[in-house]
Amino acid sequence: MRPFIKAENVVHEYSRRDEEGNVTDINRALDGVDIEVTAGDFVAVLGANGSGKSTFAKHLNALLVPTEGTLYVDGKDTSDHNNDLKIRQTAGMVFQNPDNQIISNIVEEDVGFGPENIGVPTEEIWRRVEESLKNVEMYEYRKQSPNHLSGGQKQRVAIAGIMAMKPNCIILDEPTAMLDPEGRKSVIKTVRELNKKENITIILITHYMEEVTAADYVYVMGSGQIKMRGTPRQIFARSEELTKYKLTIPEVTKIALELIKKGIQIPKDILYVEELTNALLKLKMHQ
């Protein structure tokens, strides 16, 4: 099967210019990124601030194009500007700041903004708005002003706004960085449900470790490169490497690794609290 997203040696350079337009400084934000994502997958991209993960996210939406290398989204080359609208429609993007991506004063009108832009007929817009708002459990707020919603609710409205364009994939660029724990949970739950029920390909960009445990596959970025790749369990078992890229593992994995250091025989890729306690209780029983 053709991969939904295929990045081959993608390089992106930001260049700073002086008054005469001469390049004074080149910053290589992406340095040879190779990624393949299969349709329907839930993929997480982990990275510290400045690792290049947001620059990469913007490439997936054709908001930026590679300086070198190629990037295909749903078989379309992102560096061809004729493909922009098709790519953005099939791979929608949710940003970090909930306030700065809501355009309208009324929730339902904001969700309708995308479909309006791509010329969906009026009745169909209404149907899609209703469906998307129900999908993110925000239907009862449809007549409200976004100014009165919490951060988590605003992010769910933003997700609905993307869903209304009927995409195959949603890219979320640190969607929870500005939210409180409850908002964070609700957004991640929504994203997981869209992945499972609607079979939407998810690309979640984040630095919160707890959010990636549910992902099918994880990429770790550092200084513009893919430094590690694997399932969450494979990644978190390599805790020392993660620290090198300014990331940490979930606390429970840390406890498990500490115990292993002390000679206790438990698996080293534990991700959940229940997993650890069950393993420990079983061990105690066998003693």
């Binding site: 913007k58 908001l63 929608g92 993007m93 991506q101 995308g114 479909p115 010329g119 817009i125």
Partner: peptide, 21 residues
């Protein structure tokens, strides 16, 4: 930020745009 978000949601001026209301 808003300009990027509008781009990402396929905004390209009034041409070919339909109306929800």
């Amino acid at each position: 930020d808003l300009a990027l978000a509008m781009d990402a949601r396929c905004y390209h001026g009034g041409e070919g745009r339909t109306k929800m209301k």
